[in-house]
Design a protein around this nucleic acid. Structure first.
Lengths: 167, 167
DNA sequence: TTTTTCTTTCAGAAATTTTTGAAAATTAAA
DNA sequence: TTTAATTTTCAAAAATTTCTGAAAGAAAAA
């Protein structure tokens, strides 16, 4: 297999994965492309390699910067912008964990806090509702704490943890 | 706030969350509805409460059964099918972890295993590619192990773990 | 300044995903 | 059997998301 073929396979699969993660295809493709590039790439190079429009490339490059997955990589004497991926996979995972926590867990916790305030008159349905929302709140808080810790810790305790629980 | 209003809020937020998890809106809505119902519901009741078509209801009820998030709940003397949700949140989380592992992690590991077989002649680009894919493979294997353990263990070690790492 | 280069925006087009609803299939009762 | 109730399927419609490309904006060079 040629390097280019291997890269294409990687980009293709990464893109598919992105979809089931709520990350759109192009964003995942650009990320994959930059991950396996030794050098930083310009918007035009990204457009050309992935056969996408300028608008699409620009929009998703910016989104990737927001997620902390790529950086602008200025080249002295060059006016055009170049982009490079964060290659430290632990850091990539932490940044993704941080964004997803913010976008997914926080809204749930805030809703459940609201619902918990509610005074509802006693009934089978009401009790059921209270119980389920309380259970979900407890669980979500655990996950929240876990992701918070995971996304903030520099040292990688995760591998050690996995080793310990897997044996 | 009335119970119905609280339920509607819950269903609405759960549905939004589902979207960013690659679970479609109706599937998440039905799941939420059954989670907060004291009794099992028929397809017709689900259709009526969520204002959705029979086809849509049927398709998503089946998907929820596949995920192990709801069960058929036969009533003696009744021919029509009724559905109830799994209310044990730990179990819900484990079932979701299991499905997502199967759908998302496994394909990546299988791709990376493939790519690792590849013999590529030495070059800056090739070395970069090898390094990144190796790092991702290592990390994915850790996550895979974690999710596998998480989805298979009956006893809930997760809370204890969270307590330990959060303090 | 004016020109050139590059980036950003966004309305409409295209692609993808989800939903509908009616027909077909299944299952149980009559 | 035949009839009635219920579930499943699936082609077409609707809704949603993503992408394009041209125009506007911004920044540097001439």
């Amino acid at each position: 297999m040629e390097l280019q073929e291997a890269k294409d396979k990687f980009i293709h699969t990464w893109a598919q994965l992105g979809s089931s993660w709520g990350i759109n295809k192009t964003m995942a493709q650009i990320h994959a492309l930059l991950l396996v590039s030794a050098n930083s790439l310009s918007t035009d190079e990204v457009m050309e390699q992935l056969k996408i429009s300028r608008g699409n490339a620009n929009m998703n490059l910016r989104a990737l910067i927001d997620w902390g997955l790529i950086y602008k990589d200025p080249r002295i004497g060059e006016r055009m912008e170049f982009f490079r991926a964060e290659k430290n996979i632990d850091k990539v995972a932490r940044n993704i964990a941080r964004e997803r926590r913010k976008r997914e867990i926080e809204p749930v916790l805030s809703l459940l806090a609201d619902l918990n305030q509610v005074e509802i008159k006693e009934s089978a349905e009401a009790l059921e509702f209270k119980k389920v929302t309380k259970d979900i709140a407890e669980f979500s808080e655990s996950v929240d704490g876990f992701l918070d810790k995971f996304s903030k810790t520099d040292k990688n305790w995760f591998y050690g943890l996995v080793m310990k629980i897997m044996k």
